[in-house]
């Protein structure tokens, strides 16, 4: 099949970008979307043009590295990652517009590659249980109801791709942040730091200039891993109860 591409090209974060059009004649319906871009890049290099930069790694839908805003939707027309999207989802002769994720917190590095380190910094702010290696109780010491464990897993399935931010009209990262907050709020292991965690992660999220959630649900609809909006409600609840009840204890030292 034939397709036309309109791809965002941008040299680096300091230069202005623009769309460039390309045409591909021999696209197989069995190709994945990224393989189609591989073919384009192959052609471009042979023409002496620099290839289109895009992020990708595992190409099996789990690493969260691939992105792309395809025809107005993150990861394209299906609720999956771009690497799992195949060309049979498009029509012969179709024009496909490919843009990078757009968010103030995700600056474009080059072409379709964006900087998502804001996500890492949010996790660093508190997305963990403070246990050192070794000296932990036996794995079966604390029983956890299967339902709770399953729910925690559902939240933990987030791959950190950023589609929620890309899809949200407010560029809000709440689905991402709430998934981690939820996972650790549900599990007994996360309970001791529950309050500090949500306060710190929300503060970092705001510091990164993500938008505020207006509950449109676009994030949930586009999330390739089906992370639910329930997480956001849980984070809100955790946050209000934390901020209104947590307090600091001053340490005097001397031990």
């Amino acid at each position: 099949m034939k397709i036309n591409l309109k791809i965002w090209r941008q040299k680096n974060k300091d230069t202005k970008g623009s769309f460039k059009s390309y045409a591909l004649d021999n696209v197989s319906t069995d190709m994945s979307f990224l393989e189609m871009l591989d073919v384009l890049n192959h052609d471009l290099i042979h023409k002496g043009e620099e290839s289109v930069a895009f992020d990708h790694d595992c190409r099996e839908g789990i690493c969260g590295m691939c992105s792309l805003y395809i025809n107005g939707r993150p990861h394209g027309p299906q609720q999956t990652t771009t690497c799992q999207l195949h060309m049979r989802s498009f029509k012969d002769g179709e024009t496909i517009v490919i843009e990078p994720w757009r968010a103030k917190a995700f600056p474009v590095i080059r072409d379709l590659v964006v900087d998502r380190t804001a996500f890492d910094r949010i996790q660093q702010a508190g997305g963990y249980v403070s246990v050192n290696t070794g000296g932990v109780p036996d794995a079966n010491e604390i029983a956890i109801s299967k339902k709770i464990a399953d729910e925690a897993f559902d939240s933990a399935a987030c791959i950190g791709c950023g589609a929620c931010v890309a899809a949200c009209k407010n560029a809000s990262a709440m689905l991402f942040v709430s998934a981690k907050v939820s996972q650790l709020a549900l599990l007994p292991q996360g309970k001791p730091e529950r309050k500090e965690r949500v306060e710190k992660m929300v503060a970092q999220m705001d510091a990164e200039d993500f938008g505020a959630c207006t509950n449109t649900g676009a994030c949930e609809a586009e999330c390739p891993k089906g992370i639910s909006l329930t997480n956001i409600a849980r984070m809100n609840r955790e946050y209000f109860s934390a901020i209104t009840t947590s307090y600091e204890i001053e340490l005097k030292g001397g031990d």
């Binding site: 249980v129 925690a152 996972q183």
Partner: peptide, 8 residues
């Protein structure tokens, strides 16, 4: 170790 970290 993994359970203590919150691995579900």
């Amino acid at each position: 170790q993994c359970v203590a970290q919150g691995v579900p």
